[in-house]
Design a protein around this nucleic acid. Structure first.
Length: 412
RNA sequence: GGGUCGGUGCCCGAGUGGUUAAUGGGGGCGGACUGUAAAUCCGCUGGCUCUGCCUACGUUGGUUCAAAUCCAACCCGGCCCA
């Protein structure tokens, strides 16, 4: 099947290890010579509401192509999202409704910087000719059966079963629905429809990207160049960053929470974060692992929220920790939380659940009994402790575990 | 379509009539320690403004004083055969 650009630190213009006529460098040179920008495809499935850092390196790369004068073809997989990408899932994904997909798609675009300051935005939405946003329902929703059969004829069952996820599931007796075989084909068909020259994806997308090449060849197009980027490890430092694993940092998170999460990334993953998410040079960073974590967290937060906000987040994070250690209430900008939803008199455990800080009141009760809840630095020991009115709590800082701090206010 | 095995809490997986919110492991959360982490140790891990009351073992109905456990039908899945 396809020969793809395998390099971990692939840059535009690199051409290591790939035969000449297929190398990215050759394509770039060709584009230059013919004054024709490359069409660089990146597909995203709007299956969740938030874009996280794991996605953002793809967008950074896409932006680099844009800045080099090429056309980013951003495909919103509004149709394929309703099938569910089997990639990396050990179970069939839930299918989403049209409404959910639409809502997600619009938050995605907002997070990518639509309508924002082009300097801060992740993608260039402004320069004419640099961005094309397409929804794949545009062509997929109306595929007729003969065309579907044609697509199905391009691949084989054993090719599909060669795909790791399918093989694993098949081997362990976990169901694979037939429609899941369609996913790689449809995603590949996207490449045909937009006439992609290059497709960006994580290394886990290799199969799908390669399928795109097969389909393009079948339809008489020149196969796209696949540029596969490394997968960012999640906050656990082991598995890939993924919403379903709960190990993500969302682009929409406030600076403090972004910074606090990042400075806890396991040592082993810190260098990956630095290489994949920032332009800092490893050699110039402190060798001390703790210092390096901080530098990484600061830089990643800065890229998203700007210098001032990042510095503030770092300072706040530090003083919150100090506060937790018994140094008194922090001066920091603690996110505020409204007491509006709480009906007084309120017992302590109910307070936490009513404010949404704990998933349930039983959960809140456990947290308190476990000694994980503090009010203005003082441990709350009794889950039944009763507060009679909101003003009794106004302005106090509620701490849940070591990470969550909320300043209580009556209204937002 | 036939045969067969199976569906238990976030996941895996015990339990086969009665101290049962259901052994154990993983994961998660909290506490101690530390670098905020890892490792280690300890605790918690259905819901509810909770000294009690609800809801739970695929679904529905049945037997019983009593059911995750027995019966029936149905739904879903694996494997083998067609």
């Amino acid at each position: 099947m396809a020969d793809l650009f395998p390099s971990r630190d692939a840059q535009i213009g690199d051409d290591q290890g790939v035969s000449a006529d297929q190398s990215l460098a050759a394509r770039l040179a060709e584009a230059e010579a013919m004054q024709r920008p490359l069409r660089v495809k990146l597909g995203i499935d709007p299956t969740g509401a938030d874009i996280h850092l794991g996605h953002s390196l793809l967008f950074r790369k896409l932006r680099a192509f844009q800045d080099a004068g090429h056309t980013a073809v951003l495909i919103i997989g509004d149709f394929t999202a309703r099938i569910g990408d089997p990639t990396g899932k050990s179970a069939t994904r839930v299918q989403l409704t049209v409404e959910e997909v639409e809502a997600n798609a619009s938050t995605y675009l907002a997070q990518l910087g639509q309508g924002q300051d082009p300097q801060r935005a992740l993608l260039d939405f402004h320069t004419p000719g640099r961005l094309e946003v397409r929804r794949n329902s545009e062509w997929l929703a109306h595929l007729d059966l003969p065309r579907v059969i044609e697509l199905l004829g391009i691949s084989t069952v054993s090719q599909m079963l060669a795909k790791e996820d399918f093989a694993k599931r098949y081997g362990s007796g976990i169901p694979i629905s037939l429609h899941e075989f369609l996913y790689p084909l449809l995603q590949g068909y996207d490449s045909v429809q937009v006439q992609a020259d290059v497709e960006l994806g994580g290394t886990d997308q290799k199969f799908n990207v390669a399928m795109g090449r097969d389909l393009q060849r079948h339809f008489g197009q020149r196969p796209q160049f696949g540029l596969l980027l490394p997968i960012l490890p999640g906050l656990d430092g082991v598995q890939k960053m993924s919403k379903s694993l709960g190990n993500t940092v969302g682009l929409r998170e406030d600076p403090l929470s972004m910074y606090s999460k990042l400075e806890k990334v396991p040592d082993a993953a810190v260098n990956d974060y630095l290489t994949l998410l920032t332009d800092l040079e490893l050699a110039r960073l402190p060798a001390n692992p703790r210092e390096r974590q901080k530098a990484m967290a600061l830089e990643v937060t800065r890229l998203r929220h700007g210098e001032a906000a990042a510095r503030q987040a770092q300072a706040d994070a530090a003083s919150l920790v100090a506060g937790a250690a018994g140094m008194g209430a922090a001066e920091a900008d603690v996110p505020e939380a409204s007491l509006a939803a709480v009906r007084f008199p309120a017992k302590a455990f109910y307070l936490l659940s009513a404010m949404g800080l704990c998933a349930s009141s039983s959960e809140a009760r456990r947290q308190i009994q476990g000694g994980g809840v503090r009010l203005d630095g003082e441990k709350l020991a009794d889950p039944n402790r009763e507060f009679s009115c909101a003003s009794e709590l106004e302005g106090k800082v509620l701490q849940l575990g070591r990470k969550i701090f909320r300043r209580l206010v009556q209204q937002i």
